[in-house]
Amino acid sequence: MMSYIVLGVSVALLVSSAAIAVYAERRIAGAIQNRYGPNRVGPLGLFQPVADVIKLILKEDVTPSAGYRFLHTIAPIIPVATAIMTVAVIPFGDGLYVSDMNASVLYLLAIASLGVYGITIAGWASNSKYSLLGGLRASAQMISYELPLGMAVASCLLFAGSLNILDVAASQETWWNIIRNPLGGIIFIISAFAESKRTPFDLVEAEQELVGGFHTEYSSMKFGMFFLAEYMHVVINSMLITTFFFGSYHLPFAGAWLPELSEPLKMALDVSVFLAKTSFFVFFFIWVRWTIGRFTFKQVMDLGWSKLLPLSIINFVVIASVLYFLHNGLS
């Protein structure tokens, strides 16, 4: 019963959080660039996302006549679906999760690796050079950064001794993984940026070179779904950064000082701590976007393959050996 309530609330939260993230992005961008941002629709421009959605729905839906209609239509569904599927295993608090899966971390990686199809298919089905280049860049980038991401996650699993994400969250009650494994945390955050295709890794849709990248030929709500998926992935990746490295739903060093609380109180505390951390990382994603410029394609590949991947493997091996000798002595 509990898991159905969590499922309903979290999916509703995820979909609406995308709208909130769009509004936050525009307001924060405005603040960073010393201008207002949207402030006309409703108080403080709060109804701007609603206006945007109405605009998107009312626009004409165009499919390129030389494109592939069927693939062009299903492509935007894939990233949205994979983003929603991720919610199934994320713990929002002690006992607040949708499903308890034996290998939920692997499930997360599997779902993340499927998301790239939406963009690749969109790029190809549009029958346009810009879209195709965007799609190819996306697939190259996402495959490259999946490896350091996976290795960083694996170095976290060593502390939990389990592939279950609930155990990973529970193992950080006193020591957050970012303290025990700082290098892994940095690698994970960089890879998460690349996986969600945000600046400085947004050359998938580099306006100056590719018009709009993979969604050049999309309009109306099909474009809206790509837009929704992008912000949902920002929120999901913020949740994953929180879960794997920043103590999930635990306060800092909570195991050492937090007294036993009654169940409803603990639940409320867990959820609000988790959401606060997630919101901070959503802000972090936006903050970085309006601070750092875009890398070139060569730099992105170079960083992924010849810097992050070896570093993450070394990090994994070192942590594994240290933990082994701590447990078994130097005999």
Partner: peptide
Amino acid sequence: IIQVIVYAGAIMVLFLFVIM
């Protein structure tokens, strides 16, 4: 899950990449 990660997630994306 490994089937999805390795084949559907990595190898087929590369296939598709080359074909495109």
